[in-house]
């Protein structure tokens, strides 16, 4: 379904009271999904498609990486974007974190 395959819109990252440091804006954060034995493989593939707007093949590739290697680096982003993606993935109860590269 097209509606479920579209990427989620990123939030407006501008903050009036907060000045982002150069470090925050650089893509220095990895968004990682970790393996857990509870999330269904099809479910994980589906969530990757929805959150990142990936084609099924790419989503399956990362899902299998999570399943077989224990984790997959999904994307490398600025702090705010990484945070956004982690929030989205955790909304779906996936085990996702952001780590400094």
């Amino acid at each position: 379904m097209a509606e479920t395959a579209e990427p989620l819109v990123l939030p407006d990252v501008g903050h009036e009271e907060k000045t982002d440091s150069k470090e925050d804006l650089e893509p220095g954060y990895l968004v990682i999904c970790w393996d857990d034995p509870v999330n269904l493989m099809d479910y994980v593939t589906h969530v990757f498609q929805v959150v990142f707007g990936w084609a099924k093949q790419k989503a399956e590739f990362h899902m299998l990486q999570v399943h077989n290697q224990g984790k997959s680096i999904l994307t490398r982003e600025s702090m705010e974007r990484a945070e956004h993606y982690v929030h989205q993935l955790q909304k779906y109860s996936l085990h996702a974190t952001m780590e400094r590269d």
């Binding site: 945070e83 982690v86 929030h87 974190t97 952001m98």
Partner: peptide
């Protein structure tokens, strides 16, 4: 149960963790 990071804590990550918990 939801943790924003596995590694570094630090002020920024603590604030991110709080944000995540509030959003959830």
């Amino acid at each position: 149960h939801h943790q924003v990071t596995r590694s570094g804590v630090g002020d920024k990550m603590e604030s991110n963790q709080r944000l995540l918990e509030e959003a959830l």
